[in-house]
Nucleic acid binder design. Structure first.
Lengths: 153, 153
DNA sequence: ACGCGCTTGTTTGTGTACAAACGATTTTCG
DNA sequence: CGAAAATCGTTTGTACACAAACAAGCGCGT
């Protein structure tokens, strides 16, 4: 038998646990992501980059030359999303694009001198943004949170 | 002094810590959110709801009648995003919309009978989706993760 | 009563996010 | 070798996400 206190709380209603929106991972992930995006925009400075543009430039800086799809995989963007991001970075002259001689389906992307300078200058802001996003947590909590978050991603 | 092994690794380069995209909260939050969205779509079933539509219906079910902006606040959507979500739910006949007699700026939203049935039927899926999203974590880890995540949101 | 500020809902414009379908290639395998 | 399968980049259509600007209405203080 159930204790009376619990039976009473269930009374006329069903036995299912309530669905509390504020407690769902999905909702919380969405809100945390929103907050991070706001912090990003506020702290990225005159570079005027979006999180995805920043990610693409960072990876391009790491890798030197890559195909468009490969860069998409490395930054977790699908091919269609990539189109827009690349288009805007090209329009601003931050990246270069040329056909791959080895594979005629591919294009090879790389940073321009401007793009290299801009991403080098923006890197410290990236760290500051991460820091501000985690501002509410202690060092130990940050490590714990990031390690759990990695296992969900 | 730094140990030689570390000095060697830094050699010609700068002393700044590398910016590793895969370790940044923003990137991890984005990926976790992507994964959750994929799970949601896969498990929501024939209800054919997006996460935001689901959230709006759940809150509407909790609150009974609310204005559009109020509902937006409760579900963390801005007014412009709200437009689209409400428009689609109206088109499917899941919610109702009428002017507020007390305040002619407002509209009052509520569930239709269809909307009520649909969200009641979809609720268990919501719990299953949350569960699947956290599948990699133990019970203790889930609690720890959610409590840290709440502090970031 | 009047004016000023705030809220409500809407529109427009930019930027993710992804499914689905496509043509052009390249690769794989029978 | 040659056909089927896989990959590359693109387009289209739907759905968030938010800034900015707007008209209409409410409410407060003087």
């Amino acid at each position: 038998m159930k204790p009376a206190a619990i039976a009473a709380r269930e009374d006329a209603s069903v036995a299912e646990p309530a669905y509390v929106l504020e407690d769902q991972v999905g909702h919380l992930l969405r809100r945390a992501h929103q907050r991070h995006a706001a912090i990003f925009q506020e702290m990225i400075g005159d570079a005027q980059l979006t999180p995805l543009q920043f990610a693409a430039l960072v990876k391009l800086n790491d890798l030197g030359e890559v195909s468009q799809n490969e860069l998409g995989r490395r930054t977790a963007m699908d091919a269609a999303t990539m189109q827009g991001v690349i288009k805007r970075l090209l329009a601003r002259g931050l990246i270069d694009r040329k056909p791959d001689p080895e594979d005629r389906r591919r294009v090879v992307l790389s940073l321009t001198a401007d793009g290299g300078r801009l991403i080098a200058a923006a890197m410290p802001n990236g760290h500051a943004i991460t820091d501000e996003t985690l501002a509410g947590l202690s060092d130990a909590e940050r490590r714990a949170f990031l390690s759990l978050l990695k296992r969900l991603a």
